[in-house]
Structures are given as C-alpha cells and as structure tokens.
Computed example of a mutant assay.
Amino acid sequence: MKRTHLPLNGLRVLDAAARHLSFTRAADELAVTPAAVGQQIRALEDTLGVVLFRRTARGLELTAEGGAGLAALRGGFLQFEDAVLAMQAGQSSKALTIAAPRDLTAKWLLPRLAAIAAADGEMRFAVMTSDEGSGGPVDFTEANLDLAIRWGEGPGNLEGEALESDGFVRVARPGSEAALEIGWPGCPGDDATMPIRVADAGLAIDAAAAGLGRATVPELLASGDIAAGRIEVIGEAGASRVGYWIVAPLPQWRQKKVRALVDALTA
C-alpha cells in the first residue's frame, strides 16, 4: 500500500473504537455519528481485507487482526502530533526576515523595527535589501522571507496591505533658494536630463537636505526628515497611484507572527 493512499481517517476511527470498544463512545470523541463510525470501520475493513471488530453477547470485541497493529498505529499518531507541534513552533517564534528597498529601510522601516524591538525584547529581525523599488521581483522561496515591502500600484499576485501615505511631497532644505530639480528613477516627471540625479528617493531626500536642490519624493520616506527639520515641504502634497505595500504569499500572510508585524507597521 502506498503511503499516499493510507486511509488516515479510517485508522483514526479504528484507534478510537478500539480504545472504547464502542462505536457510540468513539463517535462522541470524534464528534460524528455512530453510523459514520460504522461506515468508516467497514470501509477500512474492505481496504485492508480483514475483519477488525466482532459483535458478541458481551458487546464489541476487537479481533486479533484488529489488535495486531494498534501499538504501531498509536505510536504513529503520537509522531504525527509531534510533527504538527514542530511545524507550529515557528508560529511562536519572534524571528522574522523582511526585504525592502534600501531607501525605505533606512528612512522608514528601521526606526519602526527598533521601536517594536524595544517594546518586546524577544523580537529578532533579519532585514534584506530588495530591488523592488525599481520593479524587480522578490523571491520568497529562495530568500526564505516572511514579508517584503514593495513599491507599486498594488500587491500584485501576493497578499498585501498598503502603507498609508499622503502621496508625493516636494522638499528642500529649510530656507534654501536652490531651484535645481533632483531626479531619481521612478520620480514624477522622471527625466534623464534632470540636472541632478541620484539612485533612489532616499538619496534624493539627502541631496535636498544638503542644499543641492528640490526633490519630489514619497511622503512616507520624507516624514522622518521633515519632523527632524532637515527638510521642509514646498507646496501641497500630490496624490499618487503608486505607493508602498507590505506583501507576502498566502501561507506566510496567515502566520500569527507575520500578521502581528503587519499590524504593528500599519498602526
């Protein structure tokens, strides 16, 4: 018999019926009807080609064939329980691996992870730099990731939640009169002929803070530097159809530790 064809439901019913020597009490344990127990036992007998129980004047009796494998069967169920507990142990782990664009990591993610870790000394984070900011993919399988943060119009084919933001803001060093525009890949009006170009929005913020010019950047990235007084907002924030999304495949997304981190980051 192939392992993939093991009648696990029937074997589970056999174990319960053999312990109670009663289909009724086995049904109560398994939260099914006595008739369902009887059907499972008959189907298992047909599959195995043996008689497992006989009804006698004294009640239900286990046959020699039925009792022959019970010790190994119960040992197997205990091993199943150990396997499930081992797999669930990761749910109680507080170690998470996250991938995010370099500028988002430096400007937004790390300060928040620091606050989360300060509130819970058992938290452990591994942070990887991704190229999602330039539209590249994140390989959750190869990198063994729990979560990623990507720049785009939505979560794509993954589960996801948007990071709230006011869109784009135009920033410059406080009191600066520099009028040059600082460009970066993906910025509004991106043009290779812009007088100053940097690799990402985070560097654009730093360039503006240094007085090189004005940069239009995601408000989410600039919020910390605005609060610190390194840069100031010029004009009104502009809406954006793209933004930052926390994403993960469905199996990771369902994990309690992942959901807790998503809730903390989006609070």
Results as ranks from 00 to 15, higher is better:
residue 55 R to M: 09
residue 64 A to L: 10
residue 118 A to D: 11
residue 158 L to M: 10
residue 38 G to Y: 04
residue 9 N to S: 14
residue 197 R to D: 02
residue 175 G to T: 01
residue 137 P to G: 10
residue 210 A to F: 08
residue 110 L to A: 10
residue 121 G to H: 13
residue 75 G to A: 11
residue 122 E to K: 13
residue 234 I to S: 09
residue 165 S to P: 01
residue 146 D to E: 03
residue 87 M to V: 14
residue 169 V to Q: 03
residue 241 R to Y: 08
residue 44 L to H: 07
residue 66 G to N: 02
residue 36 A to D: 07
residue 130 S to A: 02
residue 247 V to F: 08
residue 116 I to L: 14
residue 185 P to M: 04
residue 1 M to G: 13
residue 223 S to K: 15
residue 195 P to K: 09
residue 16 A to M: 05
residue 70 L to C: 03
residue 256 K to F: 15
residue 202 G to K: 04
residue 134 S to P: 05
residue 8 L to M: 14
residue 72 A to R: 10
residue 52 L to Y: 02
residue 261 L to A: 09
residue 262 V to K: 03
residue 256 K to N: 14
residue 247 V to R: 07
residue 222 A to L: 00
residue 213 G to M: 00
residue 104 L to H: 01
residue 138 V to W: 03
residue 48 L to A: 08
residue 198 V to R: 00
residue 246 I to Q: 02
residue 238 G to K: 10
residue 115 A to G: 05
residue 152 G to D: 04
residue 73 L to Y: 06
residue 124 R to H: 08
residue 221 L to R: 04
residue 167 G to V: 01
residue 163 L to E: 00
residue 179 A to Y: 12
residue 182 I to N: 00
residue 205 I to G: 08
residue 183 G to N: 07
residue 75 G to W: 07
residue 60 L to F: 02
residue 9 N to Y: 14
residue 101 P to H: 06
residue 78 L to F: 10
residue 192 A to V: 12
residue 78 L to Y: 10
residue 226 I to S: 04
residue 155 P to Y: 06
residue 132 E to I: 05
residue 177 E to R: 14
residue 183 G to M: 02
residue 191 D to Q: 07
residue 124 R to V: 09
residue 102 R to E: 14
residue 38 G to A: 07
residue 98 I to M: 03
residue 177 E to Q: 15
residue 89 A to M: 09
residue 98 I to G: 00
residue 117 A to W: 08
residue 124 R to G: 00
residue 222 A to R: 01
residue 129 T to Q: 11
residue 121 G to C: 11
residue 226 I to G: 03
residue 130 S to Y: 00
residue 122 E to D: 15
residue 212 L to E: 10
residue 148 A to K: 04
residue 54 R to M: 13
residue 197 R to Q: 10
residue 186 G to V: 09
residue 114 A to P: 04
residue 119 A to C: 12
residue 223 S to V: 15
residue 132 E to Y: 07
residue 5 H to L: 14
residue 63 T to F: 06
residue 47 T to D: 12
residue 241 R to M: 12
residue 107 K to A: 13
residue 139 D to R: 10
residue 70 L to R: 08
residue 66 G to L: 04
residue 229 G to D: 05
residue 223 S to T: 15
residue 215 A to S: 02
residue 2 K to M: 13
residue 165 S to V: 00
residue 46 D to Q: 12
residue 222 A to C: 03
residue 18 A to I: 01
residue 110 L to D: 08
residue 231 I to R: 05
residue 34 P to Y: 08
residue 249 P to I: 04
residue 48 L to D: 07
residue 120 D to E: 07
residue 80 F to A: 14
residue 52 L to N: 01
residue 53 F to P: 06
